[in-house]
């Protein structure tokens, strides 16, 4: 693969497992390990927007938290701006954090209800940039408000005085306060009504364009990602099953799960109501992941090797990586690859 330059943020085969107690009552039950993220690799170039989609519980938020090193991976590496930050701690990590920020799904719960907008922004600025004084601070705050489209009169008000969309503007302003190079937006519009959704997406597009910030968009809504991101990764039960330029992915998805996900989207056109594609079953529990390819119990093409052998990521086109044993061309399945390996490796 040609190197298109130094990525701003990158996960290299990163894994994260948590231990969970299964069963009722405190102190009882069996200790079980949950693999939230399983050898996921993703790279985000400077100024680039990458989408991460999947159903709830697939590990997309966990992967986001790993990239920001809000969590420490159990395996693999996390790189930021040319440095391996996997084992960074304390002051060293905080210094890096200045350059990466997060916008959360629910602005109401991520803003301090007692802080005025000014206090919220001032805290973010001083925590990361050191003390700014008087006029300098004021100018910086005013510029932030202007960027996110809030009037200067908003400064002395508290979060409860704003609508959902306006609150999300405040949290975007807070994220931008430290002039980050990389932003993760975790379902940034899911909790908003439709009209505000459009406005917030417009705002994020402006931010992306004018400040040249790299973005990771975590979403379950394909439309948002298609609109916002040049590249998209699809996750299923802890694994990234397909990564491709959005244009390619939405036109010609290769992984059977990606296809199913796209065909399960409800159309807003009542004439197309019969075209719904039905994938059998439901996302499995991360406590009891299926063997082999996690998707095999629901996959219409699955055969014996899918049950036993974990598919490795394969490059099948320009920046197009898929984790499936098969090659798909249109709707036809070609000869499965690597069937001879089935007997040698099993998982």
């Amino acid at each position: 693969m040609t190197d298109p330059g130094k990525p701003i943020s990158e996960a290299k085969e990163v894994s994260k497992s948590y231990s969970a107690r299964v069963g009722l009552g405190a102190g009882s039950g069996k200790q079980k390990s949950v693999q939230a993220v399983d050898r996921a690799s993703i790279r985000i170039e400077p100024g680039e927007s990458v989408g991460l989609v999947g159903e709830s519980g697939c590990g997309k938020s966990s992967l986001g938290r790993l990239l920001l090193r809000l969590e420490t991976p159990t395996d693999g590496q996390v790189w930021f701006d040319g440095e391996d930050i996997t084992r960074f701690k304390g002051r060293k990590l905080r210094k890096k954090r200045r350059q990466m920020q997060m916008i959360f799904q629910d602005p109401a719960s991520s803003l301090n209800p007692r802080f005025t907008v000014e206090a919220t922004l001032r805290e973010a600025i001083t925590a990361h940039k050191g003390k700014l004084h008087g006029r300098q601070l004021k100018a910086h705050i005013a510029a932030l408000l202007n960027m996110v489209g809030l009037p200067i009169t908003a400064l002395n008000r508290q979060p409860h005085e704003f609508s959902g969309g306006e609150k999300q503007r405040i949290s975007i302003a807070r994220a931008l306060a430290v002039e980050p190079k990389f932003l993760i937006a975790d379902e940034p519009v899911t909790s908003l009504d439709l009209a505000s959704q459009g406005q917030i997406l417009n705002l994020l597009e402006t931010v992306k364009r004018e400040l040249q910030v790299a973005f990771l968009f975590i979403a379950h809504d394909m439309d948002t990602v298609k609109r916002m991101c040049a590249k998209t990764a699809v996750m299923y039960l802890g694994r990234i099953v397909e990564t491709a330029p959005s244009e390619t992915l939405f036109r010609d998805p290769k992984h059977p799960y990606t296809r199913a996900l796209m065909l399960s989207q409800l159309s807003h056109n009542p004439d197309l109501r019969t075209d719904l594609y039905l994938l059998p079953g439901e996302p499995p529990s991360p406590l009891e992941p299926p063997t082999g390819c996690h998707f095999h119990p629901r996959c219409p093409y699955a055969d014996i090797q899918c049950k036993t052998l974990v598919p490795e990521p394969r490059q099948i086109g320009a920046s197009h990586i898929v984790r499936c044993h098969f090659n798909f061309d249109g709707n036809q399945k070609s000869e499965p690859q690597g069937i001879e390996n089935t007997l040698k490796i099993s998982s």
Binding site: G149, L194, A195, Q197, G198, Q199, L201, N202, E205, D223, T224, R227, H268, N269, P270, D271
Partner: peptide
């Protein structure tokens, strides 16, 4: 009728909902 309203909305609010739903970026600020 749903086929009429969703395909050819008469009220500006319905139209805004529909355009917001497809994220056409035309939503009036």
């Amino acid at each position: 009728p749903v086929k009429e309203v969703l395909k050819n909305p008469a009220h500006p609010y319905t139209a805004a909902l529909l355009s917001g739903a497809v994220h056409s970026a035309k939503t009036h600020v």
